[in-house]
Write a protein that binds this DNA or RNA. Structure first.
Lengths: 277, 277
DNA sequence: TTGCTCCTCACGTCACGTGAGGTGGC
DNA sequence: TTGCTCCTCACGTCACGTGAGGTGGC
């Protein structure tokens, strides 16, 4: 029979761990003095402890281990648990690899770009979203901007969180003009004056959800937006993604000053991992 | 200006997270109503939040992030931190790979061995250890056992935690006889009757520390020990290790019954990763 | 008697999730 | 007035580490 101190030395674990395992009922000492509360362990219990440590090393939680030991688990069940755990770890491993790639991308950007705006690009899930919008082909960017302003004035203002948005459906600058969509996000079940704008071609529709959306916040309603496109494009490339759908632009805050410096917009680019890289 | 709810929806994070970041001073809302305690965020703050999330994604702790943002860190420092973090993750990655290999080994053993004794093999660090021992070459295992018993009776008993041990220095069963060492571990600075046993050849020396020692507890002081050797050998092979030094045997509990069923011993094999596999 | 080990609280870790219970603005 | 959102506690998570403060056996 060994005391905690002795037993902990034999097993090369802390005394606290032994007391803790006693407390949660994972490994009770062979004998506990009712009076002094002292714990006494048998040499044979090293076997039990080692088994616990081995299972812990495999990444199982103490709770799982406890259940396994208590239920005298079968070989098949153990196999199942291990396979499950393996899959789990493999997934974690993928995540870590992704992180490493991300870090390398940052390092690359730090070394080769002057600023670190790329720190502000974030990938997130975007849920589906009802909108009121109009879609058409315009000849030039100027025409598009004009339409945009028109839409801004025409569409009814709702709450503070009902935003204007634009989607560029055509790839880059095609020769056939720009295929664009303008409109307003519809939050909750606010009252929508649908009929009033039918003649302008506005329709109610649903923007699809996007699993992996690379987003970037642009401060300033001017050339910042163009550099924002560049930032996000660089980020996407360096981080091993590629574009996977039409980009969106959300006006989070309309500019109040004529130079537009106080406007805030979010650029959203659907992306997917680029396995070619 | 947005309330927590609105801001959390924009950023796709929980309200609790925003309040938490406020609480720890990582991201204070642009304005907090002194009276109602309500938080109000500016659209521009999405930039800050995204930067925080990006750094978090890289695996940095909130404390590190906070320091980075507070100290207006330089590009070089950021680079250093990222390199450090990368190294950390790579280390974790190695650990996970090792775990996966371990799990695969277990699965293999489960499928091809009948029991799961291999669950009881544990790798640990063993510190250096003073001992009183004698080393010599014997012709046969029988002669060795006889010497062992002699040593057991001759060596003075100390506390309950002063164990007898044996080390097999020769590789397997060489033709030149067995090179063995017997003795007793010396715990703390107990009084040692050195002189009394000089004529038997006992010396005080230090067993070296071992970084990676594969250990296995044997219950029973009989043929269990041989099967124990087998268990540990299989384990070592399947888990991608190889032997890296003379094995030790520690008598944790001397048998009290004639059949020796109640003895307990720990087998210790120095090992190292087998990169050949 | 002096050390040494043992004991039981109980807080700290890390980044929030999850109610409980109550209040202000449309 | 009814909902909705907001607020502040405060506990829970996971596996212990780390003192604090006190006690029993040689």
């Amino acid at each position: 029979m060994f005391t905690v101190g002795q037993f902990s030395q034999l097993a090369q674990v802390s005394k606290r761990l032994l007391r803790y395992y006693d407390q949660i009922g994972l490994l009770k000492p062979a004998y506990t003095d009712k009076c002094t509360q002292r714990r006494y362990y048998r040499a044979e219990q090293l076997t039990d402890l080692n088994r616990i440590l081995a299972l812990k090393d495999l990444g199982l939680s103490l709770e799982q281990i406890q259940k396994m030991l208590r239920d005298k688990i079968s070989s098949d069940e153990l196999q199942g648990m291990l396979l499950l755990k393996k899959a789990e770890i493999e997934q974690q491993l993928q995540a870590e690899l992704q992180r490493i790639r991300n870090i390398e991308a940052r390092l690359h950007l730090i070394r080769h770009a002057e600023k670190h705006k790329h720190l502000d690009v974030i990938v997130k899930q975007i849920p589906a979203q009802p909108v009121m919008s109009v879609r058409l082909v315009v000849d030039s960017i100027e025409a598009g901007l004009k339409l945009c302003e028109e839409a801004m004035t025409v569409l009814p203002t709702q709450g503070a969180d009902s935003f204007l948005f634009a989607i560029l459906h055509s790839d880059g600058i095609g020769e056939g003009g720009l295929d664009v969509e303008f409109g307003r996000l519809i939050i909750a079940s606010a009252r929508i004056p649908v009929l009033a704008h039918h003649e302008l071609g506005f329709c109610l529709r649903q923007l699809p959800a996007v699993e992996t959306m690379a987003t970037y916040i642009v401060n300033g309603w001017d050339e910042s937006i163009l550099t924002g496109y560049n930032t996000i494009a660089t980020w996407v490339q360096v981080n091993g993604y590629r574009f996977a759908g039409p980009p969106r632009e959300i006006a989070l805050q309309l500019p109040q000053t004529p130079d537009g410096k106080d406007g805030v917009a979010e650029l959203q680019f659907p992306v997917e991992p680029n396995h070619m890289v």
